[in-house]
Simulated assay, not measured.
Amino acid sequence: MSQGANAPLTAVRVRIEVTARQRLDVSGLLITKAGKVRSDADLVFYNAPRGPGVTHNPSGGSLPDAITVDTWAVPSDVATVVITASLDEQGATFAGIEPTATILDADTGRVLATFAPPRLGRETALVLVEVYRRGAEWKIRAVGQGYANGLAGIASDFGVSITDAVPVTPPGAPAPAVPDYAPPASSPAHVPPMPDYTPAAPRVTLDKGRVSLVKGGSVSLVKGGHALLSSVRMALGWQPARRGRNIDLDASCIAFDARRERLETVWFMKLNVFNGAIQHTGDNLTGGGSGDDEAIDVHLDGLPPEVVGLAFVVNSFSGQRFTDVRDAYCRLLDVTTGEELVRFDLTNAEPHTGVVMCKLVRQLSGEWVMTALGEYVDAKTARGMVKPAAALL
C-alpha cells in the first residue's frame, strides 16, 4: 500500500505486525467518530493488553509486536482502530529505521496488505495504519504520520490522559504476556468466535440480582462466577400510544455467525429453529394486555457453536410508527425460575417501523453478554432487519 491508500478488509480478524531494525512497541487506540477515545482504557498496549475487540500481542521468538483486531467484537460506537508504533530505546528516532506494517488474516496467516511509510527523520512514534468502518464494512488505511514526542504525543492527540494511561515499564522488565488467539475445541476451525475482552467500564454481572440497562449498557450473564448456560426468555411488551387503537408489532430473533452472516430467523412465519433451541411463543396482533406481548425462548446451551450473536428486533407489521407506541420494553428471564434477570425500557420513540432492541453475544469463555441497543430503522418485517442488526453486532 502507498501512503494514504485504503483497501477493504477480506477477513473478520486481522493481525497487524510491525517490524523494524530496532525493537518497537506497538499500540492500538479505539477511536469514536469524534476522533477521540471513549476513556483512557481505549489505549491497548503492553501494560494494558486487552480492549473490546483489540488485543496487544507482544513480540516473542520470531514474532514481532502486533495488534489483533476482531472486527466483530469492536463496539458499535468505535469507528476506527488506530495502530501506532513507538521506539523502545530512549532518545532513539526513526531516522534510518524502516518500519513495515504487515496486515494478515489472523486465522489463516494470509497476508492481506503491507505498508512501509516514506523515509522518516526525527520522529519517535508514528500512526502506521487505521482499521476503520465504512458503513457495514471494514477497511484498512495506510497513514504513516510521524510524531516527535513519542506514544504520549499520539495518545494525547486522541484524548488519552497520559499520566494515568501510559505507565512506563522499567528497563529490562518483560512486557505482560498475552496468549495468541486459539478457538475452543468445540468450535469449527473455519468459524472464528469472538474473543474475550475486558470492558472499559466495570464488568456488570447478575450477582446482585436484576440489572436495569440503559441504551448502550451491557451485562454479562454470569452469576456466582459461572456462565449462565441455561434457558432464557426474551420477553417484549408495548402499549398503544392512543386508546382504542391496536398496534400489531412483531418480535423476532436473528441468529448470526462470527462473520455477521445470518444463520436463521425466528419470527411469526417460522416459530422455531435449531431443533427448538430458539422458539417463538406466538404472535400477538394487538399489543393488548398489561403483561408481555411476545416472547422468544432461547436454550443457550443448545445453540450450535457457529451461533455467535443473537439480535432481538421488533417491527410494526401494520406500518404504524413507533411514535404510536408507548412503554416498549424487553426483559430477559430465567425460564426455569421465572426470575427477571435484565430489563431495558425503551424511553424515546422515533418515527420508524423497526427497532433493534438488544443483542446477545457469545464470548470465548462461553458466557453471553447482553447489550441494550434501541436503534430504530425502517423495516416492517424481520427480513428487513438483517442488515441493520448485523451492523450493530
Rank of each mutant, 00 (worst) to 15 (best):
G384R: 09
T93I: 11
S27Q: 08
R260N: 07
K33F: 02
T205I: 01
D248F: 06
I103K: 03
G289Q: 14
S156A: 14
A41F: 07
L332I: 14
S186K: 00
A185E: 02
A201F: 06
V127S: 12
G53V: 07
G374Y: 04
S156Y: 10
A182I: 08
D77F: 11
R13K: 02
A95E: 15
D157P: 09
R331K: 00
G144L: 03
I140C: 04
E340H: 08
G61S: 02
W72Q: 10
V232R: 02
M357L: 01
A113P: 00
A73H: 03
R262H: 04
R362Y: 06
V127K: 10
G287C: 00
E367W: 08
A73E: 15
L9R: 07
K139C: 01
L104N: 09
D107H: 08
T323I: 01
A311C: 08
D283Q: 07
R13C: 00
S62P: 03
R141N: 09
L120T: 05
T336N: 11
G289V: 06
G61N: 00
V12T: 15
P176C: 01
A73S: 15
L271W: 08
V219S: 04
V168K: 03
D42Q: 04
V214P: 00
V232S: 09
W138K: 02
V129E: 07
V298Y: 10
K270F: 07
P174D: 09
